[in-house]
């Protein structure tokens, strides 16, 4: 549904997005992760046809964005970071103004706007958008992004101004949209947000795509390399006895705890050996790379 090929954007000699190759399937909820300034928003602006790329191309639903930005805008919804509205108009009037660009008749506009305002809990709010709180603006932003019932939804830092209740409602909404088969592209620097709603992620750093896949796949790809060794963490009630096994490469001991570096996953053999020696095992697990640590390491690069 979304594809970029060597997508590049250079601002005043500085490369914001550098040869990005990305693919997001139909109906996928994709998390676009990366630290501030990584090029996430610039990528979204190119994908939504709001700025032109310096090189490469991007396609949404098979339409090349640079060649037909208006056609792309007709099938997408976009919630910008720090979304803004016309402060002299009510939420309903703002939505009506935007809805007119899709050629909806008055009755359809009225129905759609009423539904969307109810959806984001702004139904019956008569105050002008200029008097809205940031959270209310963010919710109205979601409504305007959905005004044309889009196939693809781009959300840039969608939970930035929401309170916990708003965040929960946003997550429910994204899950509902995913259930309707819509493709959702969520850009965020907050891992927990992406983790809560996205099936797949792409990690961007300094304009380049560092990894793409499920969160576990990305974490494994980016984890510090330990060769092909498996790290097994063991904690026992008694003092750890000496274990002889040809698969073990090294053991790091610390009182009743130890980390075994082995050629393969030998947990079954370790368990049997401890049982035979009458040692009670409190914990035994294969150590997975910590996803937060992996991402923080990328963010700090």
């Amino acid at each position: 549904m979304i594809r970029t090929e060597n997508l590049t954007k250079v601002y005043n000699g500085k490369t914001a997005v550098d040869g990005l190759d990305l693919e997001v399937g139909e109906g996928e909820v994709f998390g676009f992760l990366g630290p501030n300034g990584a090029g996430k928003s610039t990528t979204i602006l190119m994908l939504t046809g709001m700025i032109e790329s310096t090189g490469g191309r991007c396609l949404v639903d098979g339409i090349e964005v640079a060649k037909d930005p208006l056609k792309v805008k007709e099938i997408i919804g976009y919630l910008p970071e720090d979304v803004g509205f016309y402060g002299n108009m009510t939420g309903e009037q703002n939505l009506d103004y935007f809805a007119r660009f899709y050629g909806m008749d008055a009755r359809k506009r009225k129905e759609r706007i009423a539904d969307l305002l109810d959806l984001v809990h702004l139904g019956g709010v008569t105050q002008k958008a200029g008097e809205y709180s940031r959270g209310m603006k963010q919710r109205l932003g979601l409504a305007q992004a959905l005004i044309n019932d889009p196939k693809v939804l781009f959300l840039d830092e969608p939970t930035a101004n929401l309170d916990p209740e708003g965040v929960r409602e946003y997550r429910d909404l994204v899950n509902r949209l995913a259930g309707e088969g819509k493709t959702v592209f969520v850009s965020s620097h907050i891992l927990s947000e992406v983790r809560a709603v996205c099936q797949t992620v792409g990690l961007l750093a300094k304009g380049k795509l560092v990894a793409q896949g499920t969160l576990d796949e990305v974490a494994r790809t980016l984890a510090p390399s330990d060769g092909d060794a498996v790290r097994i963490v063991v904690e026992t009630r008694e003092h750890l006895p000496a274990i002889e096994d040809p698969e073990i490469l090294a053991v790091e001991r610390n009182g009743n705890r130890a980390v075994f570096r082995a050629k393969t996953d030998i947990r079954d053999r370790l368990a049997a050996s401890f049982f035979e020696q009458g040692v009670h095992v409190r914990e035994m697990r294969v150590e997975e790379p910590d996803i937060e640590d992996v991402f923080m390491a990328i963010y700090r690069r």
Partner: peptide, 17 residues
């Protein structure tokens, strides 16, 4: 004013040149 309120960006995300 549209630049300050960021409404221009929102407007441009809809199908209008």
């Amino acid at each position: 004013k549209e630049k300050e309120s960021r409404s221009l960006k929102t407007l441009l995300s809809h199908p209008v040149y």
